[in-house]
Simulated assay, not measured.
Amino acid sequence: MGTQFEPGDGQIDASLSAVMGERRQLINLAYRLLGSLADAEDVVQEAYVRWYAMSPRQQEAIESPGAWLTRVAGRICLDQLRSARVRRESYVGEWIPEPLPDRTEWADGRQGGATADPADRVTLDESVNMAFLVVLESMTPAERVAFILHDVFRYSFAEVAEIVGRSPAACRQLASSARRRTRASSEVPATSAARRAAVVKDFKHAWETKDIAALIGVLDPDATALADGGGLVNSAPRPISGSEEIARYLVAVSVIVDEQPFHQTILERTVNGQPGLVVQHDGITTSVLAFDVEGDRITRLWAVRNPEKLRPWTSYGKVMN
C-alpha cells in the first residue's frame, strides 16, 4: 500500500526544503564569526533546534525563515564570541582559528582533485584565508559580527542591528572600525596564487631536506611562526620570530621526528583557500600549516597541531591515501 498524503503536504515539504536549504549559508556565516567549524556546526544545530521547537503556527507566522535563522545564529555566535574571550585567557599557548578540512591538492596555484560535499563545506574565498581570520580575532565580538554580516554577507545595518542589539548607526561605526583593522593588515600588494604555491613548494622541499639555508631564503627576515597545540601536544609555546630562528626550529623538529617509529608525510593541500601543507604520521594528520606570502617570501606561518581541531583532516587524509 502506498503512503497516503494529505492536502498541503507538498507545501509542507517545500517549506521544510527551504528551511534546510539555509544550512550552507548559516555554516558559512558561523565559521567566519567563530573561526571554528565544529563550533559553527553546533551553532547551526542549535538554531534549527529553536526553529523546530516552535509550533507549526508560529513557524508559518515567520515571513522569512532564512532571515529568522540568521538572526538566531548570529545572536548565538555573538554570545559565544563573548564567552570565548574568557575561555581563551586560560588556553594553553597560542590560539589559531581552526583550519577548514579540504582534500584539494594544489599545483602551481591551481586547485585540483576531489572536494567535499558543497553542502557541508564553507565556501572558500578571501574571507576565510588564515590571515583574514587572524585579523578578525583582534576585533571585539560586536565589531566582528557587524563587519562579517554587512561587509561579507551584505546584510543591511538595520538587519545587523537586530542581531547585535544596537542601533543601525552604532553598527555602522562598528563595521567601520573593523574595516580599518582589515585595511591596516592588507596594505601590501597581493601575491598571485601561482607565486604563493611556488613559495610554499620551495618551503616544503627545504623542510624535507633539512636545508636551513634554503629555509632562511624562503622566509622573510622578520617572519613569525605560531603553533597551536592547545596544551595537548608539544608545540612552540610562544611565537617564533626571525627567519633563522624559525628555520632552526623546524629542522630540529624534523630531526626529532626521524627518531620516531612512525612514517611522516608532508602533503600539499589547500588550507582555507590557499596553498598549505598537511603533515601526517602513518596517515594521521598531526599538523596543518597555513602561510602568508608577500612577494617571494613567507611572512607568517601558522601551524595548527591541536588534535581536537584536526579530527576532520585525519578522516579526509585516510580517504586521500
Rank of each mutant, 00 (worst) to 15 (best):
A175V: 05
R172H: 15
I163E: 01
E159L: 06
E162S: 10
E187L: 13
S167A: 07
P168K: 10
S192L: 09
D151Q: 12
R180N: 10
E187N: 02
R179T: 13
L149F: 07
R180F: 09
S156M: 04
V160I: 12
R195W: 00
G165E: 04
S192C: 06
C171G: 05
R179C: 03
A193T: 08
E187A: 13
A170P: 01
F157D: 02
A161L: 07
R166T: 12
T182D: 00
R179E: 11
Q173E: 13
A178K: 05
A178N: 05
S176L: 09
S177R: 15
A161H: 04
R195C: 01
R154K: 12
A169F: 11
A175K: 02
S176N: 09
A175E: 02
E187W: 08
R181E: 11
R179L: 12
A170G: 01
V188S: 09
V152K: 06
Y155P: 04
A175F: 04
S192R: 11
E187V: 08
Y155L: 13
L149M: 15
D151Y: 09
V152L: 02
A190F: 07
V152E: 05
T191G: 09
T182K: 03
C171Y: 06
E159W: 03
R181G: 06
R172I: 01
A161I: 09
R183F: 10
Q173L: 11
T191N: 10
S167T: 15
S176K: 05
H150E: 08
A190D: 12
E159P: 00
R179D: 14
F157Y: 15
F153K: 03
P189T: 10
A170C: 00
A178R: 04
R154Y: 14
R166C: 06
T182F: 10
S156Y: 06
C171I: 00
Q173K: 12
S192I: 03
L149D: 02
R181Y: 10
R195K: 13
A190P: 10
S176H: 07
R183G: 01
E187M: 10
V152P: 00
T191H: 13
I163V: 15
S176M: 07
R181M: 13
Y155Q: 13
A193Q: 11
T182P: 01
A194N: 04
A169Y: 12
R181H: 13
D151G: 00
V160G: 10
A178E: 03
V152R: 11
R181W: 08
S156T: 15
R195F: 00
T191R: 14
S192D: 14
A194D: 12
E162C: 04
V188D: 07
T182I: 15
P189W: 06
C171H: 08
Y155C: 01
R180W: 07
R172G: 15
F153R: 04
F153M: 05
A170M: 08
R181T: 06
L174I: 01
V164P: 00
T182N: 00
A194Y: 01
T191Y: 14
F157E: 03
F153I: 01
F153L: 05
A169S: 15
I163G: 02
V164D: 02
D151W: 05
R166Y: 05
E159V: 14
A194E: 15
I163W: 01
V188P: 00
E162G: 04
L149Q: 11
T191I: 08
P189R: 09
V164Q: 03
A193R: 14
A175T: 03
E159I: 06
